[in-house]
Design a protein around this nucleic acid. Structure first.
Lengths: 230, 230
DNA sequence: ATGCGTCGCCGCAATCCCGCCGCAAAGCCC
DNA sequence: GGGCTTTGCGGCGGGATTGCGGCGACGCAT
């Protein structure tokens, strides 16, 4: 039996082109032009995955996601416009399984859909899935090298990103400088311990530039650092 | 015969993904959405381990744990959202065997489950398990460098932590100053015995700042110290 | 070559920790 | 009780650790 997918977008072009592609791949597609009709339709014809545009008339994707998630664990992929990374951040924070920025290729969407479906059925053990870190107000998406604090993007360098990721992925866990070094570079590299301190300094400075109160990177004297969930 | 595990969470996402993973590993999973139904279900279908979310509608994990522990010694692992919340400290103080902060990887949960099961069957001699010390109102978690007394965090330095850990890990056992020195530093170090006295002094002071009545670190004249279970 | 961003490291100041001292109080033995 | 030992505790000075500004090197694109 074919996998049924709901597609919700107010742009008729996208609706038709995407549905054609997906149907060619053997999926069954339910198209909706706005959130309200989608919600009603979903109640009658359940699907196994939903692709939602964020910006829509009458009921936008965010609201729709909330209502969907209120009653089920339906996997959801967001479509977002290029510029508002804030929206994507919020979407992910709200629990979307993945998201794609417009314009996107059909091939990419297809790959994401398959990945999300695979994860939904096999549990989270899929190593290819988006490895999104979400800790309170902090949001990190390694695939897109995206980091945001309270919805505002924080521009991080690669090294900073890896260190923060290592800390935030396991909040509360104490990491010594060697462990953070391993996370940022591979193992077996010879660098001064204090280099980590510099990166921590820059991390704190960058996030504090957005939020004076930020203090979730905690120092443990003589041990290392840990990320404190807010 | 497969090991049966109860999984209690109000988040359907977690329920499905975790249960799928665990079933793939050969466990049998009983899912519950809230504490009340879980309690009823457990009475009818006993399990060998329970994984509980702390925050749940109708009856939260804490209350559920109490009721479970009232009648059995079922191993329990907690799921928590916030790391520093003393909720977990209380949960552990109440007798949970381990806890994991969300978000967590399936791999990690699996490892914890196996560790807890192994400890439950082989006694407490498992060296890989979480090295959590729980003695009455005192709680220590070396991985997070977390120490709490009656639910309030006590900020300890590394040396203090190690000494208190050595004492509390074997309550009632007398430790002389050399033994405590070995616990804090490696063996083969040359220091004045009285240094231990200083650390004991600071430990008592820090905990007494939270609780005037604290007197579980007992002095044995001419011998050493011991931690008295309350 | 020039400009730009990143990175590793340095040096200084501030903070934290710890080992020890000295004195008073308590314990032990006679 | 007398005398000795042991412990509690305030405090102190030195050493270790960390925050932070900054600098020169390097890679990279123009």
């Amino acid at each position: 039996m074919a996998t049924r997918i709901a597609l919700v977008d107010d742009d008729q072009n996208i609706l038709t082109s995407v549905s054609l592609t997906l149907e060619a791949e053997g999926f069954e597609i339910d198209c909706y032009h706005d959130g309200e009709t989608a919600l009603r339709g979903l109640a009658q014809r359940p699907v196994e995955l939903a692709v939602l545009d964020i910006k829509m008339p009458r009921m936008d994707g965010m609201e729709l996601l909330q209502k969907i998630r209120a009653g089920s664990s339906l996997p959801v992929i967001f479509l977002t416009s290029k510029d508002d990374e804030l929206d994507e951040a919020l979407g992910l924070g709200m629990g979307a399984d993945d998201y794609i920025t417009k314009p996107f290729s059909q091939r990419l969407l297809l790959a994401r859909i398959r990945a999300v479906l695979r994860r939904a059925s096999h549990g989270d053990m899929d190593p290819e899935g988006p490895n999104i870190v979400r800790q309170g107000e902090l949001l990190m998406d390694p695939d897109r090298h995206l980091c945001s604090w309270k919805g505002n993007e924080v521009k991080l360098t690669v090294t900073e990103f890896l260190i923060l990721q290592a800390l935030a992925a396991r909040p509360g866990m104490v990491k010594n400088r060697d462990q953070l070094m391993d996370a940022a570079y591979g193992e077996s590299i010879f660098l001064d311990d204090r280099t980590i301190d510099s990166h921590i300094k820059r991390l704190r400075r960058k996030i504090r530039a957005l939020d004076k109160e930020f203090d979730n990177i905690e120092t443990l004297y003589g041990i290392g650092y840990k990320y404190r969930a807010s």
